[in-house]
Design a protein around this nucleic acid. Structure first.
Lengths: 202, 202
DNA sequence: TAGCTGTACTCAAGGAATTGAGTAGTCATG
DNA sequence: CATGACTACTCAATTCCTTGAGTACAGCTA
């Protein structure tokens, strides 16, 4: 029941269509919520029948029509109620960390590759967030904007995303380096008992 | 289908009962997976019938019996297959960040309180992770342990959790400070139009 | 000795999320 | 002029996850 609040929050920044929202959510762009397109379309429909949103058909040329949504008064009230209620704990689920946790019994190759891939993704997001921050604060300096800007919410969450991606990037690279060095050590070891075990699982 | 892999990874560190695993997962202790007790018990039962785990009844005195689980060969194979497959993207869902994203239209009081609460939780975890790291590496220095330790997986994920909680802690406090300062400014402003709007939603 | 906390689970219902397939038109590329 | 990529969605099945309630015993406290 909390995807709807994320949608409401996202729609505070303007009218968006379901498709545009998928672009925001599928990558988890702002690093604050993740959702698939199907989920979004379903939720948008439900939210409209619940009166939290109103849809508006926009005719386009050269591409299909789209329906953009706006938050209603009831939607704002829902958001306010949500904000006043105690927050659920942070939910994290990450395959990659599970793999690292088990790394001592796994083949190091694929894991290192995946860590480097994740690091690259994090770097890409880092850049993206940097640009978003610039765009959001316009010509003001950060401090000035945070003091006097009239819409700082997205900026603050973006700062959070930036921090997260930075630490993710560093952790992935450091972990990959550690595992690489250990793999070399194992590979050049005289007795092969350690690799035998790993070989059985790779 | 990935909770089972998290369970397998957790059981590499020893035999645990369902109840013990809930203690590991409910808080999301290692910051790598979150699951409720019911989910765990159900999954453990399924994993046992699938042959990934074997349960063993342990009689205790002064407290109820428990069943502890061990990973089987098939379980290790499952884990290896999982590790070789591409990882799903990091999944984050956080109420608090959604609220911050919408903060410009919300009453600042409850939000600031929640940010401080989260900061306190992060600080508590930080301390916990610090102790876990000490325990895991024993009398060795970190570098030495990462080079030569025989079980570094949990240590590496713990390092990740530590980083995450540190950044969460800082972000929450900084964001709370920013919002507090803005609230004071709004509160002491001559014209009250800004608060009027917020008042309507608080 | 009543009440509370902690260990160690079980069951059921309902909502949320994932997976997979499918539609339909536009635009650029080779 | 066919192929693939992009916009913009929809539908259905299944699986996963959450919510809420309940059982049972042991130890401690007032």
């Amino acid at each position: 029941m909390a995807l709807r609040h994320a949608v409401l929050a996202a729609l505070l920044d303007g009218e968006f269509s379901g498709y545009q929202l998928t672009k925001i959510f599928d990558v988890g762009v702002s690093d604050f919520w993740y959702a698939t397109p199907q989920q979004l379309y379903a939720e948008l429909a439900k939210m409209e029948t619940d009166g939290l949103l109103t849809g508006r058909r926009v005719v386009q040329r050269g591409r299909p029509d789209k329906r953009v949504f706006t938050v209603t008064g009831a939607g704002l009230a829902e958001l306010a109620a949500f904000a006043a209620a105690p927050a659920k704990p942070l939910l994290i689920r990450d395959d990659l960390i599970v793999k690292v946790h088990a790394c001592d019994l796994l083949a190091p190759g694929p894991l290192i590759a995946q860590l480097q891939e994740r690091a690259a993704e994090a770097a890409a997001k880092l850049e993206l967030f940097g640009k978003m921050l610039l765009r959001l604060r316009g010509e003001l300096e950060e401090e000035e904007f945070l003091r006097r800007g009239e819409r700082v919410g997205p900026y603050l969450t973006c700062l959070g995303g930036l921090r997260l991606e930075r630490q993710m990037h560093e952790w992935c690279l450091q972990t990959a380096r550690t595992l690489s060095e250990r793999a070399v050590r194992d590979g050049t070891a005289q007795d092969e008992s350690a690799q035998q075990e790993k070989g059985a699982l790779s």
